[in-house]
C-alpha cells in the first residue's frame, strides 16, 4: 500500500511540476530564453486565487481569474522585458529574468507581507478514500487540473490551425512567417498559455498548503530548470515525463533516501545521473 501511496503522491507532485515547467520549456523552445521569472508568475497565481476566493467565496472563480490574469501578465512581461532584448546575447535575457524574479518576490513581500496569506476558509479540504489511499479533494483537483491542461495543450497543438502554426514557429520562425504566420502573435500566445498553466499550479498549491508566501516560487524555479533540461530543452512531452519522473523519485526518495539526500536535491541528483549518460536530456533529439 505504501508503494501506491507514494506513487500517487509522486504523480501529484509531478503534475504540479509539469504545469510549472511546461511554460518554461515553451518559452525556451520559441525564444531560447530561460524564463526564470516564470516561477514568480506561479506565486502570483497563488496570491490572486486566494484574494479572489476570499473576496467571492468561489475557488472556481479564483483559479479562473488567476489563470487568465496571470496569462496576460506573462504577455506583458514578454512585451516589456524580453521583446526589447531579443536581439541581444541570451545571457542578457537570463539576467533580466533573474532580476525580474527577485523583484517580483520583493514586491509580493511589500504588498502582501513577509509571512504570506491564507484562505479565509480553505476549499477542497475534505478527504476521499480511493482503494485505501487517502487523498484530499484539492490533491485530486490538482491531478485532474494537470491532466486536463496538459491534454488540452496537446490537442490544441496537434489539431488546431494556430496550434500547428505554433509548432511550426518553434521549429523555424522564418519559414512559418513565409507562410503567413504572425510570429509576434504566436509569442504572445505562448506566454499566455505558459503563464496561465503556472498560475493554475500556483492556485492548486495554495489550496494544498493553505498558504502563499513571497518565496513560494524559489524551489520550483530551479526545480523546473532541472526538469526542462532532463526532458530535453523545448520538448513539451519530455518535460511532462521528466516532471512525473522527478515527482515520483522525490516521493520514494524522501522515504528511502531521506537520510542521505534532501528531498529538493533528488531532482538534481537525477539530473546529474541522466546528463552523464545522455547530455542532451532524456527526450532531446540532439
Amino acid at each position: 500500500m505504501l508503494f501506491f501511496d507514494l506513487l500517487v503522491q509522486g504523480l501529484l507532485q509531478g503534475g504540479i511540476y509539469a504545469l510549472i515547467a511546461i511554460g518554461l520549456t515553451l518559452v525556451y523552445g520559441l525564444l531560447r530564453i530561460l524564463h526564470v521569472a516564470h516561477a514568480g508568475l506561479y506565486t502570483l497565481g497563488g496570491y490572486i486565487a486566494i484574494l479572489i476566493t476570499n473576496a467571492t467565496g468561489s475557488f472556481t472563480l479564483g483559479i479562473t481569474v488567476s489563470m487568465v490574469s496571470v496569462g496576460f501578465m506573462g504577455m506583458v512581461i514578454y512585451r516589456l522585458i524580453y521583446q526589447p532584448i531579443l536581439e541581444k546575447p541570451p545571457f542578457v535575457a537570463l539576467i533580466a529574468s533573474i532580476g525580474l524574479f527577485i523583484a517580483m518576490e520583493e514586491i509580493y513581500r511589500i504588498v502582501f507581507g513577509a509571512y504570506g496569506i491564507t484562505f479565509a476558509d480553505a476549499p477542497l479540504q475534505g478527504t476521499l478514500n480511493i482503494a485505501g489511499i487517502y487523498l484530499r479533494h484539492c490533491e485530486i483537483g490538482a491531478l485532474l487540473l494537470a491532466a486536463l491542461l496538459i491534454t488540452s495543450l496537446s490537442l490544441f497543438t496537434r489539431y488546431s490551425r494556430i496550434g500547428i502554426a505554433w509548432r511550426a514557429t518553434v521549429t523555424d520562425p522564418g519559414m512559418s512567417q513565409s507562410f503567413g504566420v504572425d510570429v509576434i502573435k504566436v509569442r504572445y500566445l505562448n506566454f499566455f498559455i505558459g503563464s496561465a498553466m503556472a498560475a493554475g499550479a500556483g492556485s492548486m498549491v495554495a489550496v494544498m498548503n493553505n498558504l502563499v508566501e513571497p518565496t513560494m516560487g524559489s524551489v520550483p524555479s530551479y526545480k523546473a530548470l532541472a526538469i526542462i533540461v532532463l526532458g530535453g530543452l523545448g520538448n513539451v512531452r519530455g518535460t511532462v515525463i521528466a516532471a512525473l519522473i522527478i515527482g515520483v523519485a522525490e516521493a520514494f526518495g524522501t522515504i528511502y533516501l531521506g537520510n542521505i539526500l534532501d528531498r529538493d536535491s533528488i531532482a538534481f541528483a537525477l539530473l546529474i545521473l541522466v546528463l552523464m549518460v545522455k547530455p542532451t536530456g532524456l527526450f532531446s533529439k540532439g
Binding site: 490551425r161 500547428i164 502554426a165 509548432r167 512559418s176 507562410f179 503567413g180 504566420v181
Partner: peptide
C-alpha cells in the same frame, strides 16, 4: 500532412 497544412495557412 501538417507541413502541407502550414503551406495553406494564409
Amino acid at each position: 500532412n501538417e507541413n502541407l497544412s502550414m503551406g495553406c495557412y494564409s
